[in-house]
């Protein structure tokens, strides 16, 4: 394994350690309540905080001492990440989040559909858009009419 992989493992471990530390600090701000059991709302959070911190520390130590144990072989899978695809899929979710309140589920969903398809390498933007609109509209009708889920119609609410 390359040194770069271990760096990633170390970063994930330290992230876990940081969450654990945060949990331990933040637990102090939960008001302690008197209970019959003598165990208030702080006990489990402390336990979880310690657990996260210990796991993070152990994983970090292993990452620095030769890498995590029993990792699957990643030659050929992880050496050429496609960050452009990652960005396009992420953009799809973020655009959907920003647009759904105003434009409604169908329009926001179709945008998401086109962006994700593009991220996966599709080059037929218009065809994807048509498929996206049809799929999103069918999903919208099934879930709102048949299953009584509430989803925003947005700009298309006149239909």
């Amino acid at each position: 394994m390359s040194a770069r992989t271990h760096l990633g493992e170390a970063a994930v471990s330290l992230g876990l350690l940081a969450i654990g530390a945060f949990v331990l600090i933040d637990t102090g701000s939960i008001p302690a309540a008197q209970t019959y059991s003598g165990v208030g709302p702080r006990f489990f959070p402390y336990l979880v905080g310690v657990g996260l911190a210990v796991c993070g520390a152990l994983l970090a130590w292993r990452a620095l001492a030769g890498g995590w144990r029993a990792m699957p072989p990643d030659e050929g899978v992880h050496d050429r990440p496609d960050w452009r695809a990652f960005a396009l899929v992420s953009a799809g979710v973020v655009v959907q989040m920003l647009a759904i309140g105003h434009a409604g589920f169908i329009i926001a969903g179709a945008l998401l559909f086109v962006l994700v398809a593009r991220g996966f390498g599709s080059r037929r933007l218009i065809l994807d858009g048509v498929i996206g609109v049809v799929l999103v509209s069918v999903a919208y009708l099934v879930f709102t009419r048949l299953l009584a889920l509430s989803l925003p119609a947005g700009w298309l609410s006149f239909l």
């Binding site: 589920f105 559909f113 398809a117 593009r118 996966f120 599709s122 989803l151």
Partner: peptide, 15 residues
């Protein structure tokens, strides 16, 4: 095709 499959998955996920 994979692009349509995963685009569809995310539609239902956000739904």
């Amino acid at each position: 095709p994979r692009p349509l499959l995963y685009a569809g998955i995310l539609i239902f996920a956000t739904l």
